[in-house]
Nucleic acid binder design. Structure first.
Length: 277
DNA sequence: CATTACCTGCAA
DNA sequence: TTGCAGGTAATG
């Protein structure tokens, strides 16, 4: 579900609604492990009375800053959701956590598969997170030249590089396949084998698929919802993702799309537009 | 690098 | 009933 466009869409829906609000309480459900190893009572005591000062995103992480150098760091993994609900609204399906705000609103975390986490971190914890993450692909500093530097000398497959959060933070399986398709590059090409024009095309394709995903408020196949619980519409904008398994026609040339496993992930591509290495 | 584990629901 | 899922950490 949640790659950069989805997490950023959630951030944009939450930010105006919860910035400046005071946390009044915390509720956990049947899976307190959502908070990591910190007991819920400890988290509740630490955050109660604190003000939400900003809502940021870094890669696929959502960061809810509180006054006094603490922050909730949320990772949705595959099926996590973060939604705003009235205090009196019935629990979400698979709800594991509710952060209660002073205006009668809850920030609720729900996750069918229990992979996602909501961690309370201090300044040191945020520093560790930051140093594990690579470039922000939509940041103006992420130029084609910087991208080329990342690829230089890398023997791994280009798709693995795109998915490696230590190199570029925020791309997942959907947008990786879409960017490679748009750039006409096979997912199993070696990163260092790309020619300069291919690097530039792929750089542009990464930015355009992410920007379009944002404009369309994310891709919803099943579980993804924005901060108000609404689905995105970018699924209608995809060229190859999810279509290789049934051999659907390439939207560009009509060839039968294919699906192979690359770095453990299903990878959809057009054998004609993206020639094998 | 490739495989497995973490979980659960859903489509084939 | 089996296999698969938008992610990542751990393991061989």
């Amino acid at each position: 579900m949640p790659e950069l466009p989805e997490v950023e869409t959630i951030r944009r829906t939450l930010e105006p609604a919860i910035t400046g609000r005071i946390i009044t309480g915390l509720r956990t459900g049947s899976f307190p492990g959502v908070l990591g190893s910190t007991p819920a009572e400890v988290v509740a005591r630490e955050i109660s009375g604190r003000t939400i000062t900003s809502v940021q995103r870094r890669g696929k992480f959502l960061v809810i800053h509180l006054n006094g150098d603490l922050a909730f760091v949320v990772h949705l993994r595959m099926t996590g959701r973060l939604v705003l609900r009235d205090r009196l609204a019935p629990p979400e399906r698979f709800e594991h956590l509710a952060i209660e705000l002073d205006i009668g609103l809850d920030v609720r975390f729900a996750d069918q598969r229990k992979f996602g986490r909501v961690l309370l971190l201090d300044r040191a914890g945020l520093g560790q997170l930051e140093c594990q993450l690579g470039a922000e692909p939509l940041d103006p500093e992420f130029t084609a030249g910087k991208f080329a530097d990342l690829l230089r000398g890398r023997q791994g497959k280009i798709k693995s590089v795109l998915l490696d959060q230590r190199l570029i933070a925020g791309i997942g399986n959907i947008y990786a396949d879409e960017a490679l398709f748009r750039a006409g590059i096979h997912p199993e090409r070696r990163a260092s084998s790309l020619f300069q024009d291919e690097v530039e095309r792929l750089h542009g394709a990464i930015q355009s698929v992410l920007r379009e995903g944002l404009v369309n408020r994310g891709t919803t196949f099943s579980s993804y919802r924005d901060g108000w619980g609404e689905p995105g519409t970018n699924q209608a904008n995809l060229g190859v993702y999810g279509r290789g398994r049934r051999g659907e026609p390439c939207p560009c040339c009509g060839a039968s799309l294919r699906c192979v496993v690359v770095s453990g992930r299903s990878s959809h591509f057009c054998p004609h537009c993206q020639p094998a290495p």
